[in-house]
């Protein structure tokens, strides 16, 4: 099987909405431990691709395998999250009426059944991990704040913290630095590189400086399929990429 020994394997995936082909024969392979940046113009299908990987959208045709053997098309969002795929949304989505700490408690890996949640009591281990993450995302002082009162950048970080708490094998990160200051952007790049040491990451981003800072293999999507793939220099010198995306 071709999917063997890969972490994520998409082959010939297509999906359309009311006749509009959002994803057109897309193929993408991600190795274990790899970090990949996805670039592409609006409507290139970046978010839809993430929807397919996380089970929110079912592809019309094509194979999607995780860990070489697990067919993701047969699982729903909760299953896929439990398999170890975490997702950070474009618009920061945190639970606004929960405190920062409770957001992490909810994200923390562990049993997800209703009954276990009803009688759940936080263990010392869990408390330690949450504290660790709170330090990592620099929100320890604000751990009792309601998430609604965080700044935009802090919400982005909280969401990354939630991903860490989830302890996934693969992280899908959608535009993590949108609306961040330059300093925050640099910090975020550092954080993602740290994370990528232990897990695989797919980052969708428009900010070319940020992508350069990540210094990883780049895939450019266009009209639902792969236009170019390789190092950032290779991709950004591709005349087609320049034409449809970078512009000159």
């Amino acid at each position: 099987m071709k999917a063997k020994d890969t972490l994520l394997y998409l082959d010939g995936v297509s999906v359309s909405f009311d006749g509009f082909r959002a994803i057109n024969n897309l193929s993408l392979v991600l190795q274990s431990g790899e970090m990949r940046a996805i670039i592409g113009p609006n409507g290139a299908g970046k978010t839809t691709m993430m929807d397919i990987i996380t089970g929110k959208t079912k592809p019309d045709t094509g194979d999607v395998y995780f860990n070489g053997t697990v067919d993701l098309t047969g699982h729903d969002e909760a299953d896929i999250a439990m398999l170890g795929i975490g997702r950070k949304f474009q618009k920061p989505t945190v639970f606004e009426s929960h405190t920062v700490e409770d957001n992490l408690v909810l994200a923390l890996s562990g049993p997800r059944s209703a009954l276990s949640a009803l009688f759940h009591r936080q263990s010392k281990d869990e408390a330690d991990r949450i504290h660790e993450i709170l330090y990592t995302i620099r929100l320890f002082e604000k751990r009792h704040w309601l998430a609604a009162n965080l700044s935009h950048g802090q919400k982005q970080w909280l969401e990354i913290g939630m991903l860490l708490a989830q302890d996934p094998k693969l992280l899908l990160v959608d535009e993590p630095v949108a609306g961040m200051t330059d300093a925050e952007t640099a910090e975020t790049a550092k954080l993602l590189r740290d994370i990528a040491r232990t897990r695989s990451v797919i980052v969708v981003e428009h900010d070319m400086h940020f992508v350069r800072e990540l210094d990883v293999k780049v895939t450019c999507l266009h009209e639902g399929s792969v236009l170019a793939e390789g190092s950032l220099d290779h991709v950004s010198n591709d005349p087609r990429v320049i034409e449809v995306y970078l512009g000159r």
């Binding site: 729903d76 909760a78 999250a81 989505t93 639970f95 909810l106 997800r112 209703a114 949640a117 759940h120």
Partner: peptide, 28 residues
């Protein structure tokens, strides 16, 4: 007050986010 309650409030405020965290929202 339980963790389940926190999940419920999470469902109220951002249902699909809760799913992407691995919770079977329908069962809760």
């Amino acid at each position: 007050r339980s963790k389940l309650g926190k999940v419920l409030v999470g469902v109220r405020d951002a249902e699909s986010r809760m799913r992407f965290l691995g919770y079977r929202v329908d069962r809760y």
